[in-house]
Design a protein around this nucleic acid. Structure first.
Lengths: 130, 130
DNA sequence: CCGTATCCGGGGTGATACTG
DNA sequence: CAGTATCACCCCGGATACGG
């Protein structure tokens, strides 16, 4: 067995075709790796949210950033925006099928982050001590 | 069946305990969601790299950003830095067990990005047309 | 309720030059 | 080869005010 191979297989199909001028990692991760997008996607994985509900679910997001992040997610096809012309109007945001399919692998990273948060924090303390 | 539940189950353990003041998503994704970290982790998933090799593997990264990103990854415990006191010196970067375990779920997102890159680009074109 | 417009400060990023 | 130092820039993001 090759010593470079980990005990857990990692398959990265991308390695063979990685093109830095038209890079899916940059194109996709650039959005979902932003400051607010992951948290919004997590909330929306539960159920559709109205604008104000979403704002309450992420307490320290500004109205400006909430609007802007939702627009970006909508533009990329992850989130659908539905306006109900009530008075006052209400707007509902929900994951699209594409957004839901993204959340499958993304939830793996999120759960990893939760499980290994302490290990990362410990590594930082060790590094900063030296 | 609950209409809110997708055909593909998504389990987010984090939903029950999400604490925004000490948030693993922010703490972990903040690093690996950066501009350069994902690309470096992809390269390092193959094999250890020396500084210059890594630089060649990501052609448009500056020396400054390569150093800084590697330091951050080292600090979080994802990458190990080994100095060989040859002349001139050579430095090798390799994934740690923690980094390798991160790459398991991360590779899922990366492969998703590759598979769905075109769908995302199409969604953008559609959105921008309106 | 759900935005948009404007201003502004700070940090991330690149370019360049220098060192062991 | 593998960095560090410094400068300058730009854009993200917060605060605030206003509008449909």
């Amino acid at each position: 067995m090759d010593a470079r191979v980990s005990s857990q297989a990692i398959r990265l199909d991308i390695l063979e075709t990685l093109d830095f001028n038209n890079c899916p990692v940059r194109d996709v991760m650039g959005q979902i790796g932003g400051k607010w997008a992951p948290l919004l996607l997590i909330s929306l994985s539960e159920r559709p949210y109205r604008f104000s509900d979403l704002r309450r679910s992420v307490p320290d997001i500004s109205q400006r950033m909430l609007t802007q992040t939702l627009r970006d997610l909508e533009r990329d096809g992850f989130v659908a925006r539905t306006v109900y012309p009530t008075k006052p109007p209400s707007v509902e945001y929900a994951l699209t099928p594409l957004g839901r399919s993204l959340l499958v692998p993304l939830s793996g990273v999120i759960n990893w982050a939760e499980s290994n948060h302490e290990a990362v924090r410990a590594a930082r303390i060790r590094y900063d001590a030296a």
